[in-house]
Amino acid sequence: MTFVEEITAYENWMRTVCDVVEDDLERKHERMSKNAFKFLRATFFRWAHAVKATAPEILGLPAPLAVGDVHVENFGTWRDAETRLVWGVNDYDDAAEIPYASDILRLTVSVRLADFSVGNRDAAQAIFEGYGDGLRDPGPTLLDQKEMWMRDYVAVTDKQRESFWNEIDGYPDASPSSEAKTALLASLPAGSEFERFARASKGGGSLGRPRFVAVARWRGGRIAREAKALVSSGWDWAAGNPDRSSKLDDVMNGVTSAPDPFLHTARGFIVRRIAADTRKLERDSDFDQKLDTKLLRAMGSEIGSIHASTSRLKEAILGDLERRDPSWLYETAKATASAVEADFTEWSVSNA
């Protein structure tokens, strides 16, 4: 199946499971045409096809609860139940049981396609070694107690705090579905003074799914919650299992994690607290300067830690990993990135 045929099939399926925002879908198509990295972010449903074409051997590897749509911008910060500042994977929309190598391969491909200053071979080595670290010694990245070096990478400036609320205030008013309203209002603390519902238009792969925000006041300040439509993992869709239940809650609440207590699924939506210090770290000039092999190693370690929560597969994954080396990851990412770029070219030509 060509890419254009597959995206058409995927989006037609999406229309049967949620109220697709067609304007956002058009915006997503425009973003996909900008470069191969944005294209990768928007097309996880196609990833299984790329892996099958370039690295079919990994499809038979142990398949733990995995992130799925891993890329270099899918990391961020939140506060856990003890209000500790945690860094890690920020988006589990496409979580599923997936061969373990897929997550580290996709992260490595994303670095290559994003064209950071970090060399591709160095990036592959950092991610590969970090993954082994996280698998052997799993646990959350707690910035208040352990990985304090990372604070410089995620610090929130006054300008960013102001920008966060300016963005919220710029969202247009909206009338969410009854399911989204109920889920959002239930997520607010007792005694909140509700202000308004708004519609947010953002994301990479999720752009096109309905996304709403509830703004309220609580004990002297403003607070916000977000609800985004939940659909099955693109991996399961590609495997012909579009009705398989999402594994988001299972992966996020794994025993090796310090989960965000405000992030949960309800009434067909993913609900979370949003704030200036609970955010996805997306690419900008500052992020480009900060991304280095130390941070990539931490990303690899986070993925390894997540996979380790499927304890029954840990030893099997370690056994397979020890038969490989960073050169395998480098070469496989190179071939898979070429497959993604071929799809990107097809898409660009079809939309010229």
Rank of each mutant, 00 (worst) to 15 (best):
G221V: 08
I223C: 01
I223T: 03
I223Y: 09
A224L: 00
R225C: 06
R225G: 02
R225A: 05
E226D: 06
E226K: 03
E226Y: 07
A227I: 03
A227T: 10
A227V: 01
K228H: 02
A229R: 02
A229Y: 00
V231A: 12
S232P: 10
S233L: 06
G234A: 08
W235R: 03
D236M: 00
D236W: 00
A238K: 05
G240L: 09
G240K: 03
N241Q: 11
N241P: 11
D243K: 13
R244D: 11
K247I: 12
L248G: 13
L248A: 15
L248R: 10
L248C: 10
L248F: 12
L248N: 11
D249M: 15
D250F: 07
V251Y: 12
M252Q: 12
N253H: 14
G254Y: 04
V255F: 11
P259K: 05
D260W: 03
D260F: 09
L263Q: 04
H264P: 14
H264T: 15
T265W: 08
T265V: 11
A266Q: 08
A266C: 12
R267Q: 12
R267K: 12
V271W: 06
V271F: 13
R272E: 06
R273C: 13
A275Y: 07
A276E: 02
D277G: 06
T278S: 11
R279P: 06
K280Q: 14
K280H: 07
K280E: 15
L281R: 09
E282L: 10
R283H: 10
R283L: 15
F287I: 13
D288Y: 01
D288W: 07
K290G: 13
K290Y: 11
L291Y: 07
T293P: 06
T293L: 02
K294G: 12
K294R: 11
K294S: 07
L295F: 05
L295M: 05
L296K: 04
L296Y: 06
A298M: 15
A298Q: 14
A298P: 00
A298W: 10
S301D: 05
I303E: 04
I303D: 04
I303Y: 07
S305C: 03
I306Y: 03
